[in-house]
Design a protein around this nucleic acid. Structure first.
Length: 606
RNA sequence: CGGGGUGUGGCGCAGCUUGGUAGCGCACCCGCUUUGGGAGCGGGGGGCCGUGGGUUCAAAUCCCGCCACCCCGACCA
């Protein structure tokens, strides 16, 4: 494949677009890879689309390798299957809905669990047909409240989604593990850094779930990790529970006047005044936060969460725990006169108490721990209120925020918080969709069993942005060889016609003789500076300059990533390029580019 | 959805306060010169100033609505 810059549909920009904040967005637009076409929607230009297809190719090869089979659904889907699983309403404003001329409802698929489930139900009915993994690479639509960061969060994007079907849980575990391995291979080949974090299954139902996060400061997901290798989504972090303390000999609780202490800060200040030797901090207080749970059927229930005063309730963690119910601020104090705002204590909380309000506590609240907490009277707090002696609770909930320095649940050290972009997600769905849509097969003994499923996603267009994000430098894009829009960028510069003749000959041999994809800067009357800048911006991994050195019989080979330049004799130019393309680096450098170990194909995407 | 900011040729910006013929740099076209780090000179083409309404003799400029984009938050297989 030969891409001549004299006729390539490409215009690079000298200035950064003002509305692009993140580097991937800025550079992809500036280098002429993508162009915004709609809110949250982008047009792929020739070079960008080549990168996109390369990512797609890697994903496809690895899915095929693990034995998944590719199918392709429409993006325009009927309402009924989504009605059956409840997601027509559950998805809310995030789904694009439309009505056809007969008034029938449709949606633009945000994800395809229902359709895959129905397809398998349509054709298969025996355990002998399973296990089965199907996938597609599809345009997905989500009416995001706030599309941002270019390709990273669009309203239309490309996703590889796959689904596994098994008769039993052991089979699901195997399918899940296969996908996990395939994803590791995919992201390794793409040269994308990732951490695999355990995630909550949340509204999707099911059990085991892990996300592949690409760590980057511009990421939208917060996750935690420890020096010992623990990594998890904040929602999935479990608290290390302290040992219970024997109740014998603990001091009696006592109520103290603590006027004007509706907040933890004011309370701690007063507590320190009253008992200067006790060394009280916010950690010694028990904060009781009232929220309202709204269930999917619309019913509302107040809930109080008790947690150490040095922590806030983490809305995401709380929601993950109470899903599918939603959490809203509690406003109905007038209907609950026993609840004294700012002085709420656990003595009147719990299903067996005066208020009957459900009371869940942080795991750090274990038997024998002593707390300063509200006395349920304005201006009064109780000290030394002992958990398990002076108050009880209905259950334990992981709703407190995770703070840097908290211990990892597996004992692998203190946690740090980091940001990442979700580039893949693997998920044990279980039988939720199979049950809702009636996907059953006959087992060995002729009984109907409900199939168990997994769902697995890779953000293809998002991966393009993530790769750009992690590989660019101050000069421009800098593609890994596996996804680069060309194998080599040949720059002809100078006014001597012999230069262009020599470059043409070399390019022809690389393209026709060796099947390389060559981006050839054959533009006449364009100054060398412009061509060099463009080559750096465009980011093809190997740049070959045919210019003034030709008079001395040499051309210059440059590695985009390392910046290293080597003069090679014209006669050896072809072999030097081939070595760079095959080896992933110049002889003099060791960049360890991904794909280096892979068999080199003589016709990559030509 | 809440808060903040911005909308002027393809890109980056000025003009708006104080209403009166729409401007600059890059990009694009023509000519001459130039050719190893975003060239120089000369000559051109291209914009219902986001959009709808209002005020006014007159609106890019003043007023109101809407839309879009960016940032923070909420939300998000």
């Amino acid at each position: 494949m030969l891409l001549r810059m004299s006729s390539l549909f490409l215009r690079t920009l000298r200035d950064d677009p003002a509305d692009a904040e993140v580097p991937s967005h800025r550079l992809l637009v500036r280098a002429g890879y993508i162009r915004r076409a709609a809110p949250g929607g982008f047009t792929w230009l020739p070079l960008g689309y080549r990168v996109f297809r390369n990512v797609e190719r890697v994903v496809r090869e690895e899915m095929d390798r693990m034995g998944a089979q590719e199918v392709h659904f429409p993006a325009l889907l009927p309402r009924e299957p989504y009605e059956a699983t409840g997601r027509w309403t559950e998805y809310g404003d995030n789904v694009f809905r439309l009505t056809d001329r007969r008034g029938a409802d449709h949606l633009l698929g945000p994800t395809h669990e229902e359709m895959f489930t129905l397809l398998v139900k349509d054709l298969y009915s025996s355990y002998k047909d399973l296990p089965l993994s199907l996938y597609q690479i599809q345009t997905k639509y989500r009416d995001e409240a706030r599309p941002r960061a270019g390709l990273l969060r669009g309203r239309e994007f490309t996703m590889k989604d796959s689904y596994s079907f098994d008769v039993d849980d052991a089979g699901l575990d195997r399918s899940y593990a296969q996908h996990r391995e395939a994803y590791v291979r995919i992201f390794d080949r793409l040269g994308l850094d990732y951490v695999i974090v355990s995630a909550m299954s949340g509204a999707m139902g099911g059990s085991k779930s892990e996300e592949f996060l690409h760590p980057t400061p511009i990421g939208e997901d917060t996750f935690v990790r420890s020096p010992g290798g623990y990594a998890a989504n904040v929602e999935a972090v479990t608290t290390v529970v302290p040992d219970a303390v024997p109740l014998d000999g603990l001091p009696e609780a006592h109520v103290e006047d603590t006027p004007d202490t509706p907040t933890i800060e004011t309370l701690v200040a007063v507590a320190q005044q009253l008992f200067p030797d006790a060394g009280y901090t916010a950690r010694d207080t028990l904060k009781n936060v009232v929220v309202t749970l709204v269930r999917p059927d619309g019913t509302r229930e107040p809930l109080v969460v008790g947690l150490p005063g040095d922590r806030e309730v983490d809305a995401k963690r709380l929601e993950a725990q109470v899903a599918p119910a939603e959490v809203q601020p509690f406003t109905e104090f007038d209907q609950h006169p026993l609840l004294v705002k700012g002085y709420l204590g656990p003595q009147i909380l719990g299903s067996g108490s005066k208020t009957g309000i459900r009371y869940l506590v942080d795991p750090r609240v274990v038997e024998g721990t002593r707390w300063i907490t509200g006395a349920n009277e304005p201006g009064k707090h109780v000290f030394n209120l002992v958990a398990g002696r002076d108050f009880g609770w209905d259950g334990v909930i992981e709703a407190a925020e995770v703070l840097p320095g908290d211990p990892a649940p597996d004992g692998s050290g203190p946690l740090e918080l980091a940001r990442g972009v979700e580039i893949g997600h693997i998920f044990q769905l279980g039988r939720k969709y199979a049950e809702a849509l009636g996907l059953q097969v006959l087992d060995e003994s002729g009984r109907l069993v409900t199939v168990t499923m997994g769902s697995y996603g890779v953000g293809v267009s998002r991966a393009v942005a993530a790769i750009a994000e992690s590989t660019h430098d101050e000069l421009g894009l800098c593609w890994p060889r596996e996804v680069a829009p060309a194998d080599v960028h040949v720059v002809a510069t100078g006014k001597d016609p012999a230069i262009f003749t020599a470059a043409e000959e070399l390019v022809a041999e690389l393209v026709d003789g060796w099947g390389l994809t060559v981006l050839f800067d054959d533009r006449p009357k364009v100054s060398p500076g412009v061509k060099f800048k463009d080559a750096e911006l465009l980011g093809v991994p190997t740049i070959l300059t045919v210019g003034r050195g030709l008079a001395d019989g040499v051309v210059e080979l440059r590695d985009r990533a390392s910046g290293e330049r080597t003069d090679v004799p014209v006669s050896g130019a072809r072999d030097a390029v081939l070595a760079a393309v095959r080896g992933g680096s110049q002889p003099a450098t060791e960049t360890g580019a991904p794909g280096a170990e892979l068999a080199w194909s003589p016709t990559p995407g030509a």
